[in-house]
């Protein structure tokens, strides 16, 4: 069951890179897990630590990369990730949103997201927000200051309210908004349509019987 998305105020971590791929978000060795949880400590593993990470390792004593933004004390409690275009490109691994969620991110802001990744984030109750390049540039400027930028995220009103600057409106697919706000289990929703699915199958089997041969 997905958790419902409620208005909150969070710290923004700026990750100033375009085309961040899902291999970078969660490297392949952690995909061997058969669980849905536990990926947070390995989020951005190769950028975040100076050593090589392996699954099952205690990450609390690993050497941190001081140059990686996630390790900057200003963003220690970040819940909003601000990044550049095509975030989440590459592999379809849902482990990427699981890792972001496990770390504590709840909202992602970028000029664009890769399609499969965006779909996967919504399935996990994370909110991907697309803003134009200019607005993203402006947020990067604010987020890089000495004090971390905070934003209040209001999905109901489709509005971002930064701690400095004007409120920013954002667009989101109506169905996605509905699912996020209500924490809906969409498998349950689809199963309510079982009769319509059965009717489709019957119709389709007449047209294309080979699709149902087994």
């Amino acid at each position: 069951m997905m958790k419902a998305f409620e208005t909150f105020r969070g710290v923004v971590m700026p990750l100033d890179r375009a085309n961040v791929d899902t291999d970078a978000i969660i490297p392949k060795q952690f995909l061997k897990s058969i669980q849905r949880t536990g990926f947070g400590p390995n989020l951005f593993d190769e950028w975040r630590y100076l050593d090589h990470g392996e699954p099952g390792q205690d990450c609390s004593n690993r050497p941190l990369n001081p140059d990686f933004v996630l390790n900057d004390p200003r963003y220690a409690k970040a819940e909003i990730l601000l990044t550049r275009h095509n975030f989440g490109c590459g592999s379809s691994r849902e482990h990427a949103p699981w890792a972001l969620d496990g770390y504590g991110f709840r909202v992602l802001i970028a000029p664009s997201f890769a399609d499969i990744f965006r779909q996967n984030t919504i399935k996990n109750g994370l909110l991907p927000i697309v803003l134009d390049e200019q607005t993203v540039d402006a947020l990067f400027a604010l987020a890089g200051g000495e004090t971390a930028l905070e934003i209040e995220v209001d999905l109901e009103a489709q509005q971002l309210r930064p701690s400095s600057g004007e409120p920013i409106a954002f667009e989101i697919d109506a169905f996605h908004r509905h699912c996020l706000l209500n924490g809906l289990d969409d498998i349950g929703l689809t199963l309510e349509r079982a009769d319509e699915i059965a009717a489709y199958e019957q119709r389709r089997q007449q047209q294309a019987p080979w699709l149902f041969a087994s």
Binding site: I116, I187, T190, L191
Partner: peptide, 23 residues
């Protein structure tokens, strides 16, 4: 033919369907 995440793998197993916006 397109790639999906694990939640959608489960959705297809359970329902033989997916909820999609037309690209």
């Amino acid at each position: 033919a397109f790639g999906v995440g694990t939640s959608e793998v489960e959705h297809v197993l359970a329902t033989q369907c997916l909820l999609q916006r037309k690209p």
